[in-house]
Every structure is written in structure tokens, then in C-alpha cells.
């Protein structure tokens, strides 16, 4: 069984939800990333989404754009991101790691080379924001051949017919984008998301994680009541950015935030 299936499975079996957190690899400096990942795992994070810095992150709001720009100041490459996973895996074989970014980073490396390197590094899944299933056949085959899941997103604008098609291609888990907008947007409609998730559950047995608009214990708790996974990205990246001048303080701050989220979710 894959690490993603195990981590989601454990939480679902305990009538709880997985905590999924996103950070940009190399933000605000390359040396911070692996210690921050360990700190997050230690605070109860089940799945770490590690962002691949990209020059043109067209689906990201201001916080994650700034995170990408901070990482790119250090010229963090996809190869470096994979090396960070290798280092993380030396001490943690339990926490699932998902790389998240834009297709061009993977195209530049080449699909097969990327699939091989990701599998060897211990990556469990890949999310590419601008790669819909219609364009994904070749990459999905390369990744599946190496046991790595290609995770797709569903949005509030996705029709039932299209959702069925996307879900037929999905593996790992399903990332439900809770609102229309870039990452970091406000105005989460909890009731609307809950009822849509009920409908999607009838179409798939994969875990359903919800992201976008979850920024604190309160919103995490609300979503944990009905989702299999709660994804927090911009709120964590913003906190890390605020500590850019004191990078040594970042792992502890990240852990404190994750603990707060986990505690709120467990109280759901």
C-alpha cells in the first residue's frame, strides 16, 4: 500500500482527517526546508506538499508567489527539490511527500527522468496545477510505472460529467479546490464545500482533501468535519516569509502552527 493510502487510511479509520501542509522548497533559504519538513511531521502533519519554485506561478496568490520568488533568489532547481526529499527520507519514511508545481519544470527535466528521480527520492505523488488529465497521459504512465501517483484537482466549476472523467484518471487522493480564485483567497463557503464533497463521494473511493481558503484552526476544524484531508498552504508560507530574517526560528514556528491546526481538527 502506498504511503498516501496509509496516511489517509489511518486518519479515516480513526474518524479523523489528514493534515496536509504546503511549503515552497528553498523558501526562504534552502537550508530551512528539510528541518521545517521534519518539524511539520513531528507536529502531526501527514502529507507534506513541497512546492517546486517556478518563475510564473499563475495559479498562486501573493503569499506563494512571494515564496517562489524567495526560493528563486537562491536558484533552487527541481534537482535541488528532489535532493531535499532524499535528505528528508534519511530520517522520515513515514510522512507522505507530494511535489507540487507547474508542468514546465517537469518538461524541462523530461518525463521519464523526472519519474525515475522522484521515485528514487521517495516522492509519493505529484500535483501539477496546469496539467489537466486530457494532457497528462504520457506523464501519468511514466509516474505510475514508478509507483508515483499523479494527483488531480477538482474545482467548484467542474461539472459532474467532467468530475467523473477526472476521477477515472485519478490516484493517490483528490484535491478539491474549495473556491474560485488563486491560492490564499478568502471567503470559504463551508456548507457549499460540504455538500459538493458529499456528491463527489458517490463518484470515487479515493480520499478527498480540501484546499484553498483554510488559514487557521477555525477553518481547518470546520473542513475537518467532513473532508478526508485538510490542506493549508498560503497561511504557512506567509508565516515562513515573515521569519525570513530569522531562518533558525522557522521550523519551530511551522511546528507550532501545524500543532494548532492539528489540535483544532482533532476537536472537530
Amino acid at each position: 500500500m502506498s504511503r498516501l493510502a496509509l496516511r489517509f487510511g489511518e486518519r479515516i479509520a480513526a474518524d479523523s482527517s489528514a493534515l496536509v501542509t504546503y511549503l515552497v522548497a528553498g523558501d526562504p533559504a534552502p537550508a530551512v526546508t528539510v528541518p521545517a519538513m521534519h518539524a511539520l511531521a513531528g507536529a502531526g502533519v501527514d502529507v507534506i506538499e513541497l512546492g517546486i519554485p517556478f518563475s510564473d506561478p499563475e495559479a498562486e496568490g501573493a503569499d506563494i508567489q512571494a515564496g517562489c520568488e524567495r526560493a528563486l533568489l537562491h536558484k533552487v532547481r527541481l534537482r535541488d527539490v528532489l535532493d531535499m526529499v532524499v535528505t528528508f527520507r534519511e530520517r522520515d519514511t513515514r510522512t507522505a511527500v507530494v511535489l507540487m508545481g507547474y508542468l514546465n519544470s517537469v518538461e524541462a527535466m523530461g518525463y521519464q527522468r523526472f519519474a525515475d528521480a522522484a521515485a528514487e527520492a521517495g516522492v509519493d505523488g505529484v500535483i501539477l496545477v496546469n496539467l489537466p488529465p486530457e494532457e497528462a497521459d504520457d506523464l501519468r504512465q511514466a509516474l505510475h510505472g514508478r509507483g508515483v501517483d499523479l494527483i488531480f484537482l477538482l474545482a467548484p466549476t467542474t461539472t459532474d460529467e467532467r468530475a467523473r472523467h477526472v476521477l477515472s484518471q485519478a490516484s493517490g487522493f483528490v484535491y478539491y479546490v474549495s473556491l474560485k480564485g488563486p491560492t490564499g483567497s478568502a471567503n470559504l463557503d463551508v456548507d457549499g464545500v460540504r455538500s459538493r464533497l458529499d456528491e463527489l463521494r458517490a463518484m470515487t473511493s479515493l480520499p478527498l482533501a480540501v484546499g484553498f481558503g483554510i488559514r487557521d484552526g477555525g477553518t481547518a476544524q470546520a473542513v475537518a468535519g467532513f473532508a478526508d484531508g485538510v490542506v493549508v498552504g498560503s497561511a504557512l508560507v506567509r508565516r515562513m516569509g515573515e521569519l525570513a530574517a530569522q531562518p533558525d526560528a522557522i521550523p519551530a514556528a511551522a511546528a507550532a502552527f501545524a500543532s494548532e491546526l492539528r489540535a483544532a481538527m482533532d476537536a472537530a
Partner: peptide, 20 residues
């Protein structure tokens, strides 16, 4: 019909925009 000019073109966007 899916917007390909040989290997070029296509539609590489966030899921939210697909419907539009």
C-alpha cells in the same frame, strides 16, 4: 478539436478555468 497544432497548443490551465 482539443486545440493542438501538432505537438503545440493544447489547454494547460488550472481546473477552475476548464469549464469557462
Amino acid at each position: 478539436e482539443r486545440g493542438h497544432f501538432g505537438r503545440f497548443g493544447g489547454r494547460f490551465v488550472a481546473e477552475t478555468l476548464t469549464h469557462a
